[in-house]
Design a protein around this nucleic acid. Sequence first.
DNA 1: CTGAAAGCGCTTACAG
DNA 2: CTGAAAGCGCTTACAG
Lengths: 369, 369
Amino acid sequence: MKHQGSNSLRGPPRSGPYGGAARGPGPAASGRVTSHDVARLAGVSQSAVSRAFSPGASVSPKTLEKIKRVAESLNYRPNVIARSLITGRSRVIGLVVAYLGNSFYSEALENLSQVLQKKGYHVLIFMAYNTDEELDRVVHDLLDHQVDGIIAASVSLSNSLSERCGAAGIPLVLFNRHQGEHGPTAVTSDNYDGAKQVARFMARAGCRKIAHIAGWSESSTGCEREAGFRDGLAELGIELKGCIDGAWNRRIAAEAARSLFSDPGDRPDGVFVGNDHMAFAVMDVLRYELGLRIPEDVSVVGFDDAPQAAWKSYDLTTFRQPIGAMVDLAVEALLERIDNNALEKRHFAIPGRLVVRNSAKSPGSPANE
Amino acid sequence: MKHQGSNSLRGPPRSGPYGGAARGPGPAASGRVTSHDVARLAGVSQSAVSRAFSPGASVSPKTLEKIKRVAESLNYRPNVIARSLITGRSRVIGLVVAYLGNSFYSEALENLSQVLQKKGYHVLIFMAYNTDEELDRVVHDLLDHQVDGIIAASVSLSNSLSERCGAAGIPLVLFNRHQGEHGPTAVTSDNYDGAKQVARFMARAGCRKIAHIAGWSESSTGCEREAGFRDGLAELGIELKGCIDGAWNRRIAAEAARSLFSDPGDRPDGVFVGNDHMAFAVMDVLRYELGLRIPEDVSVVGFDDAPQAAWKSYDLTTFRQPIGAMVDLAVEALLERIDNNALEKRHFAIPGRLVVRNSAKSPGSPANE
DNA sequence: CTGAAAGCGCTTACAG
DNA sequence: CTGAAAGCGCTTACAG
């Protein structure tokens, strides 16, 4: 036999095991207004209230209007936690990021959360650096929270985030990184081609002793930019004068610059730096430690077009990653995978374009004549 | 009479309204492993499994060990959505931010989410600019998601976020803003005193024609920095040469700089800019548009100590807000309010300190002799 | 269109 | 220490 009106877990106990049925109209004592409260006051069933808040459910206009009015007066809103539990969908996306010190990523984060918000999703944020323990923890947390999908930025080639998500059956899109043919869906710019364009630009501007401070070699982005740059130079018969891994890190990139420019008699006349974040540090070393003029003594080109690249102190010539298009596509691809698991995995590489400013000699510019 | 084994909402229908009781051991067909699956395999009740995952619940060591073993083999983890529904606590904190273009905020965001993660909370992020409609939507979303508390950065004086949270009974802590005596709990640095220190510093360094490009006058932070700066100068008998609201915006601040320095015959010899983010724009205008030398022709002082302030291109003398301490205190205060509603509302103003670099003449420095 | 009922996957008094 | 039961606040077939 089923007990009626037994004590609830919270709130004061009612009169006895069979009593307490006479609960009057009005909001529950517990604080939060539920669909039952609305139903009672509107004189309809709880199901009707639920339908009134489910777009597309069949409710007569009259009932709908009555329920909405009562709901408004009670300040009722459906509990999305309960909804998630039953539908198995949370409308929450996990965003895994790191290194917000690189403004390209804070800009991406800002854009990603805005676009997702606009699509009716919410964003659970996880700061995770590229260690396996961290990513382990993060994946577990994401699974526990039943996120509908994940967008991960700056995830390295070797880590196992994607395997774990795959095993858990949770859609994943990589942002600004990819893991090749068999990796998860990924959105990047065309790093290889972009770096190749940079090579041609520098060569045509007259640079001949060209160095590269590369991105981290464990990241697809770092590798492809280096490869594109090397190949671009090679096609013109130019060999890299020096190449050091800057690990996406300002300090390491600065050290690399000191090392590449250590011989005053044989300095590079151009450096391509793997991203803007490192390029700013490199420019500061060249100017303020080594006393070099940019671009007269040395051309500097970056990659990303981070906000500071446009600041006059840097005025950095750089390859712009189309961040808006990348964000839109990443979100679209993720939602596609969520709504319709049929979308095949793919690596989208969006073309970018070189933004010419004044940190590097330009082909045909006066500085080059 | 209660129906047994009626069709579940998802998954294939079973044999009939009274059939389907013979569900064998092993994980549910639906995909996710539940506490029932673990219970069946471990030969214990579902309650026992639940207790095994509730720290402090009474389970015998032997049972615990058995359950943990089975759980591990099935890859079981409790569903936190279900837990939230029943406990009424989500262990999720809403973080309301904006303007990540100002690196001080991206640094704060990074720190806040890390500290909250470390405390076992997760972070739902909301980008909200200071319009009332946006904040309305955000508050509703936060309530719907049953966040346990909210930390809001860069919220203006006039908006109603705090009232709405108060009405909903949801703990709120303001970060880098406050709303006075009757406002919510707030954590800032001591902006008034900090700006006063800047005034004394600039005066002692010999500046006499001092201008101010202020923060937004609708924000507590902007007002207090301006007031502290004015009062600091006044105590030394110096009056501000000019003051323009920069609205925390690079473009507007740059415009303000052009205007304040428009008379070549009577230019300020020092500018205090309401935050570093604007100060970088101002420095670029002074140097690259007006051809002024910093600090020889004009001293520039900022506020925040954003990461770029230490970059050699700016090398900005600035008042450091103790971001680590501010983050720790904001989190602590919020969790205190959540665990123990008794904590009274308060405005915490943490002292900071002036970081002397080379964008401003220093008292007693050679540049000043 | 509408209501009664089952159930999402848990937690927690309660009684043994 | 342990299990049976109720219930958190919803959604959704099902039957009228």
